[in-house]
């Protein structure tokens, strides 16, 4: 069959998400952020939330998320996204509010805001990309950097006697009574992308149904920060990150109730 006979609108099985802007993303080649952006754009579109979704962008690599996903956005100060989301959601209860943050933003400088938004059970979605590094500032150690991992500020590898242990944020927020759904996903394979999308979709549905805080941790790669090719990064993530950050649902009140 000829290529031009296949490439026809009626045969299309995968389109660029409608709510993804035309801007070329500033992320490095292979960055997990791009895949998660696509998923978020698809979920907002598929749930018919484009007029209701309000995103809170972080400080870090995803600071420009508002340039890519076509909904209203507020750009927060470093770590403060859950505080903003709290107010946006409480003052606009008909909106579906989500934050999009990295582990440095959320789990270091923004720990208090995260813990308290989760413990109050704000009707928001928190999406955290856990790549174990501060990408934007040049690859320094983050709360989720693995033991032994080399970064700009742990040039000989993270030592727990000096730097403490890598933080399992999903597990921490899962014990808070305000969270209704806590899951850890990845986006390195098609199967993983499907699962991550289902998780983000569920989180948005929870927010719409006012069930409390949904927390979706995505274990991702930062090939620039890790100094590996995107393919090697995926492999390294599977071999090292998943051991410390196992994938799957950590809490789902739909199933326990």
């Amino acid at each position: 069959m000829k290529r031009e006979d296949i490439i026809k609108p009626e045969n299309k099985v995968y389109s660029r998400p409608r709510l993804l802007d035309d801007n070329i993303m500033h992320y490095c080649p292979g960055c997990s952020h791009g895949v998660v952006h696509k998923i978020v754009a698809e979920v907002i579109d598929e749930l018919g939330l484009e007029e209701h979704a309000i995103g809170i962008a972080p400080v870090g690599c995803a600071v420009f998320a508002y340039n890519y996903i076509d909904c209203d956005w507020v750009e927060a100060a470093h770590g403060r996204a859950p505080a903003l989301a709290t107010a946006v959601s409480r003052l606009n209860p008909d909106k579906v509010v989500f934050t999009y943050q990295g582990d440095g933003d959320l789990a270091a400088i923004g720990t208090a805001e995260t813990i308290h938004a989760c413990t109050r059970g704000e009707n928001i979605v928190i999406i955290m990309i856990n790549n174990g590094i501060y990408g934007m500032t040049g690859g320094q150690m983050s709360p989720c950097t693995l033991e032994g991992a080399k970064t700009a500020t742990t040039p000989y590898g993270r030592r727990v006697d000096l730097n403490g242990f890598p933080l399992r944020v999903g597990n921490v927020v899962s014990i808070l009574d305000g969270t209704c759904y806590v899951t850890r996903q990845a986006v390195h394979t098609t199967a993983a992308v499907r699962k991550a999308k289902a998780a983000i979709r569920k989180a948005f549905l929870n927010a719409r149904a006012k069930k409390g805080t949904s927390f979706v941790e995505i274990v991702g790669t930062c090939s620039s920060g890790w100094k590996m090719s995107p393919e090697k990064s995926n492999k390294w993530m599977e071999e090292n990150m998943f051991a410390h950050y196992p994938l799957g649902d950590i809490k789902d009140t739909d199933k326990t109730e």
């Binding site: 927060a76 100060a77 403060r80 505080a83 903003l84 709290t86 107010a87 208090a112 308290h116």
Partner: peptide, 18 residues
């Protein structure tokens, strides 16, 4: 009642943005 003044003002920031 927020968890800190830092959160209070950032809630104000979020609310004001709407």
């Amino acid at each position: 009642q927020a968890e800190s003044e830092v959160s209070s003002i950032n809630m104000v920031y979020g609310g004001a943005a709407t």
